[in-house]
Amino acid sequence: MKIRTKIMLGFLILAIMLAVAGAFSIYQLKTIGSSVQSLLDDNYRSINAAKKMTESLEREDSGMLLLLSGKWKEGRRTIRGADENFRQALETAENNLTIDGEKAYVERIRKLYGKYSAFWDRPIAGTADEGNLDWYFGEVQPSFKAVKGAVQELMSVNDKAMYKTASGLKNQAHRAIMPLLVAILSALVFTLLFNFFVNLYIVNPILSITRSIEGFLTHEKPIAVKLDSDDELADLAGSVSNLAAMVKMDRHGSDQ
């Protein structure tokens, strides 16, 4: 193999190493980007919806207490607004099923909410239920707590998934950095090797040829440079040797 090819291949290897490291890192960084997006899209949206549902439930509970105390107008208004918000949030959660088993959690919320809303669908103010705290603590509040618990479960599932994705992001960031780090270290080793080979197979033969020529010029020592390789330097050593032989012959000819 010729020196030109060897050097070209050496640099090509270095270039490939850096290019591949760069490509892998870019790919990983892009993956991190899409993971962040999915973290926001998939989990954060559901968590937000669950928070809204919890807030709405709290307001509905306040509305219930207003109805119990006979303030049916304020009570109805509070409940109606909260119910609208709850259903919107529930719909958001239903359209954002991204985790295995999430559908079951949402269906449970809908089912329990149906039971809970039945308590305030019928009239309370001006009926036997008005001021009936036993009825409230015995039936309404357990139902309210059950819905709230189901919403908390949905939030917890998404929280865990978000934590898992975030942990995955840490690993992905690590995987984006590592190819570059490995490439830097490999390039250093590679440079040392390249330097060693250039010295051994290019610089040393050139010095050896130079010394031989100097020896020939000063003391007429025969030029005999032995090279292992089959490249331009071996050709050069052969040509110099031939040249020296011709010069020697010419000198002997002119002496005679």
Partner: peptide, 11 residues
């Protein structure tokens, strides 16, 4: 890549 490099230079 590191493995193939010496094979290029060393006979």
């Amino acid at each position: 890549l590191i493995g193939i490099f010496p094979a290029i230079f060393v006979p």
